[in-house]
Amino acid sequence: MKKILLIIFMPFFSLIGHSQTKSSTILDEKNGFKEFKLDDQYSKWSAEIKFTNSEDEGKKYYDYTGNCCQKLFNSELRKIRLGFKYNVLNLIYLVTPTEKQVGEDYLSAEYKYLKSSFDLLFQQKGYEAMPDDNSGDVQSIWMGNKIQLILTYEYMGIKDFDGKYIATSRCNVLISKISNLNDGF
């Protein structure tokens, strides 16, 4: 009986594996965002970035000040932040402008648009998760073999707009290498 079930379901297992491999390949081949590629040297971007902060282990963060890459699909970007570790680009962080929520739907139209665009691009739905910190944030995650992309819906709270209280949000996209968990963690 087990052999029969295995034979029946074998094509489905191979389709799932093929889908994940295709998605992984696309994300790994992109290796970044437009002209920004993970592993770029600091010198490639040094004339177009402004230092913002640093962390331990040689990590430094810069805001991109150039004119390239100001849209993610058809969405405007408010900020592009680049993270370098020992002068090698290892993190790309994109932020959309804060938007007013329209209608009664909890998730913004921007988040839904970006999520569906990434789903189509990677030919696979991202894994969606909500942290249990009561922040109201929602994340969609796509994993390659080497690269990960995390789209975050960031709830910004209720704001006063001329006496009208309206929910606000923005979207963030993090593109980075997947950490090697065998490196002493």
Rank of each mutant, 00 (worst) to 15 (best):
N90C: 12
W45P: 10
I166A: 08
Q148I: 00
K112A: 03
L181R: 06
G136I: 04
M156E: 14
V88A: 14
N67R: 05
N145C: 02
S179G: 14
Q101S: 10
T65M: 14
I7K: 08
V88Q: 14
I49L: 13
E35H: 12
E104A: 06
L89W: 00
G32R: 01
V138H: 04
E55W: 05
N87D: 15
K50E: 09
G184W: 00
F12G: 06
K177S: 12
E55N: 11
P131A: 03
N31E: 12
W142N: 03
A129R: 09
D105E: 13
S135N: 01
Y111N: 00
S23A: 13
L27V: 05
K34E: 15
L174R: 09
S179A: 14
E55T: 04
D137M: 03
G103C: 07
L114K: 00
I150N: 09
F122H: 03
D119Q: 02
V95T: 15
P131S: 02
I175M: 10
G58V: 00
G66R: 01
N31M: 08
Y86L: 08
C69Q: 05
L151G: 05
Q148H: 06
S24Y: 12
G126V: 04
Y42N: 07
L82K: 02
Y113F: 14
R170C: 14
A129G: 01
K79V: 11
N134I: 01
D183T: 08
K50F: 05
H18C: 13
Y111T: 00
L149W: 00
Y93N: 11
L151N: 03
